[in-house]
Amino acid sequence: MSRDALQESLSAVMDNEADELELRRVLNAFDDAETRDTWSRYQVARAVMHKDLLIPRLDIAAAVSAALADEAVPAKAARGPWRSLGRLAVAASVTVAVLAGVRLYNQDEIAGAELAQQTQQPVMAGPQVKGPAVLAGYKESADTTGPMANGVLQGQSGWQDQRLPGYLRQHAQESALKGTESALPYARAASLENR
């Protein structure tokens, strides 16, 4: 298989656009150190393009293969019940390697999300100024609205209708009674009464 075709497949996998065949091709070629090198270069390039934080290069695939290689030897030699125990050990070590990788990636994701949040802030305040005076403010959280728009239970009847407003009020007032930190809990409680 030509180098170019492989690189094209790699790129497709990276962009999540690879078909079954391409994925197989890449997986087969993945034992090759050069291919893995290309892969991690692509990762770095992609991270730069997306302005993600750069993480130090970490070859999880290699780590997993190595862990397998290390563990598999005693497992093969073992007989009877020990054999399955050995398998368990392999599975465990692979899990650990994968979990460690996932944890790393998650951290990266969180950091990225924070960045996104910070850059978003001016945008968030934007509609307030540009858009129609009051309504703009409500748009932002409009999609999180439940059936309780405008503080009134809508489309629900019976138990919830009677009990929920009372619970909301009790929670708000109890917070307000306790809270000395600011006027915020008071304001929340007051806003519940504005119907």
């Binding site: 959280s141 999180t144 609205t145 439940g146 059936p147 309780m148 503080g151 239970l153 629900q156 019976g158 138990w159 919830q160 009990r163 929920l164 619970y167 909301l168 009790q170 929670h171 708000a172 109890e174 917070s175 809990p185 929340r188 806003s191």
Partner: peptide, 29 residues
């Protein structure tokens, strides 16, 4: 952050479970 947990006996079998959000405050029963 704060949350309250309310517990109340119910006799009516038709009472349904619910989840709703009012601005910053969420209610799940």
């Amino acid at each position: 952050a704060r949350f309250s947990v309310f517990l109340e006996p119910i006799s009516d079998a038709s009472v349904t479970e619910t989840r709703t959000q009012l601005g910053p405050t969420v209610a799940v029963s």
